[in-house]
Design a protein around this nucleic acid. Structure first.
Length: 430
RNA sequence: GGUGGGGUUCCCGAGUGGCCAAAGGGAUCAGACUGUAAAUCUGACGCGCAAGCUUCGGUGGUUCGAAUCCACCCCUCACCA
């Protein structure tokens, strides 16, 4: 751990978008162990990369002796946060949100240490929101909010100003609910710092005010920057959609590959955001990469660190094994065990159908999930970008699946390694 | 309740009777160049190997022919009440 204080470290990593009075915050953090919280709304059955930065942030605070509260938004998830959202969102059913809340809880537990007397706390705002009756809500909580102020928040402005869009009372109330969370957590656990994405600033400051009014306490806020990519596209998305933290939704191998493909222009920033490596070390890596020319090491380091953090050492090893086997360019070096291992390690694989006579390559590969539609396969075939056991195929072989996957050309009598393009691999077995 | 504006292929957004599977942009995929990077160029981009099939909020109609016209309905926005 570096000797500098936490805020300095976070600044060096560009992990701070905004804070309430920095002086007071630093003072507060140095005065002892601070209890802080970050909320995660259940909008899906798993967290994704976008949640990773705040999650790691809680851990950073914990490493510096503070006490994090991970708040699952069982209640707020039922309402939907309108902040900077262009459109009103579809409500999810109570059962679904409940179910997702449980999934998130389990996931979050892997990142932060909840053990011990002063370990982290896992909370759910459903616990203190669900039984508040309307009149109490309006009289005890609502009275502290000025609609004028709520309306003027930047986070809901585009929903209010923009033609063609609006905001329901339900979503509009979201900021009150989140403010109430802060108030409650302050009351229950002495929580005095809330962190979140920069889009949460409006909601957080609302909470600060509520805490001051109801609890007569002065509390703090710190927001994290939105993670952007240098080319302007959205961070954390791949062809298949979001990159999830759940290994069942995004395999450790795919996760590792995602990081490995980080553009040079982003990789050093991402190392600061997504790893616990010292900033000095990261700067060194950058300097070394520059000096060396050619392929940088940073992506590999980022992929390893991030995969280890999220999926653990074993999964990282597996992801590396697959990567090594597939991208070294020499599949002939793989022995029979290696093939079985690839399958176990999580390389996408599937069993070949009994009969291939009627089947086109396009439909076979689409069915296996190698491509999303036949056109993509066709396109690849026309460019000789489909390889079966290192043999490239052409368009006229589309209907010759039976011959291409003949027993005699299988590796060890049962494996076919199919490659589409440079990066997509799939293992077929008999 | 009234008036006016909207709902188009993943997203944004053109299209207002045939030339429309539907401009343009973005995203995405593949190829060349590379370093499983960026930039650039090329191609694909509703589904299908193909013949062909299915789309433009919904339902019904007019028409040889509709995303485009008509009726009703649903959703949504603004203003007014």
């Amino acid at each position: 751990m570096s000797k500098r204080n936490l805020i300095e470290d976070l600044k060096a990593r560009d992990l701070i978008a905004q804070t309430t009075s920095e002086e007071e915050l630093v003072e507060h953090l140095e005065s002892g162990s601070v209890t802080l919280y970050c909320g995660f709304d259940p909008t899906a059955d798993s967290l994704h990369l976008g949640h990773l930065v705040p999650l790691l942030m809680l851990k950073r605070f914990q490493d510096y002796g503070h006490r994090p509260i991970a708040l699952v938004g069982g209640a707020t998830g039922l309402i939907g946060d309108p902040s900077f959202k262009a459109q009103e969102r579809q409500l999810n059913s109570a059962e679904v949100v409940q179910n997702w809340s449980e999934r998130l809880k389990a996931q979050i537990s892997q990142f932060i240490d909840f053990g011990g007397e002063d370990g982290a706390i896992l909370a759910n705002n459903f616990d203190w929101t669900s039984n508040v009756d309307v009149l109490s809500f309006l009289r005890d909580i609502g009275k502290h909010f000025s609609v004028n102020k709520m309306i003027s928040k930047e986070s809901v402005k585009q929903r209010i100003d923009r033609d063609g869009e609006g905001i329901s009372f339900t979503e509009f109330t979201y900021q009150i609910l989140q403010s109430y969370d802060y108030q409650k957590l302050n009351e229950l656990y002495g929580c005095s710092l809330q962190i979140g994405g920069s889009d949460q600033w409006g909601n957080i400051t609302g909470g600060i005010e509520l805490v001051r009014r109801m609890n007569s306490k002065s509390v703090h806020a710190l927001t994290l920057p939105l993670i952007t990519k240098s080319d302007g596209t959205k961070f954390g998305k791949t062809e298949g959609g979001a990159v999830w933290l759940d290994p069942k939704k995004t395999s450790p191998y795919a996760f590792y590959q995602f990081w490995l493909q980080t553009p040079d222009a982003d990789v050093y920033r991402f190392l600061k955001f997504f790893t616990f490596l010292d900033v000095e070390r990261i700067d060194e890596i950058e300097a070394e990469d520059k000096a060396r020319e050619g392929r940088p090491e940073a992506q590999r380091i980022l992929a390893e660190e991030a995969t280890r953090l999220v999926h653990g050492e074993q999964a990282l090893e597996a992801a590396r094994r697959i990567t090594e086997a597939l991208f070294s360019g020499d599949h002939s070096a793989l022995d029979e065990n290696d093939y079985s291992q690839l399958q176990l390690d999580g390389l996408p694989s599937s069993q070949l159908p009994e009969s291939l006579s009627e089947l086109s390559l396009t439909s076979l590969l689409v069915e296996a999930g190698v491509a999303s539609n036949g056109k993509q396969v066709k396109d690849a075939l026309q460019r000789s970008a489909v390889m079966i056991n290192d043999q490239s195929c052409s368009m006229d072989q589309n209907m010759e699946a039976e011959a291409l996957f003949g027993k005699e050309s299988a590796r060890f009598g049962r494996f076919f390694l199919v490659k589409l393009g440079k990066k997509k691999h799939h293992l077929f077995f008999v």
